[in-house]
Amino acid sequence: MEQMYQDYKDIAEFRMVYITEAHAIDSNWPMGVAEEKNIKQHTNFGERCATAEMLISDEELTIPTLIDGMDNAVNQAYNAHPDRVFLIRSDGRLAVAAERGPRGFSPGLEAAEAWLAELKESGSEPELPEAAPEDAGDRAAAKDRKSDDDK
């Protein structure tokens, strides 16, 4: 994450969006790091900022960080919990929208990195895929229905 930021910060903007804890010690599914660092779920914005600062300091991150509000509105808008990677093209459309959670985070990083590498090499943003396969399927089905109607 930090390495990608260092490698591509000259051609893209990066933001870490700090959201609600995934495995705080007072959650149903606490994890070792939460116990080690005594991380509880944030009850106010100040606590959320403090935990984010702890992460930034411990991991020596320099990525600019934004803090989700206590209404978790941005987390919800992107359905990001527990973690997730997105890449937005300069036209505002999403070029990478990874799966959420540990299953999706690494593939998301790889997809974003591949996209940025292509941009760096070619000087222009990779095209969006024409249409998702299910959309193509829907269109084909609609066409079949239409030709049935014509008969």
Binding site: M1, M4, Y5, Y8, I11, A12, E13, F14, R15, M16, V17, Y18, I19, T20, E21, A22, H23, A24, P30, M31, V33, A34, K37, I39, T51, A52, M54, L55, I63, N75, Y78, A80, H81, P82, D83, R84, V85, F86, L87, I88, R89, S90, G92, A95, F105, A112, W115, L116, L119, E125
Partner: peptide, 14 residues
Amino acid sequence: QDDRPVVLFFGSYT
């Protein structure tokens, strides 16, 4: 954004 792509990393310490 300033006409550049934006990478968003959502997550928390835990």
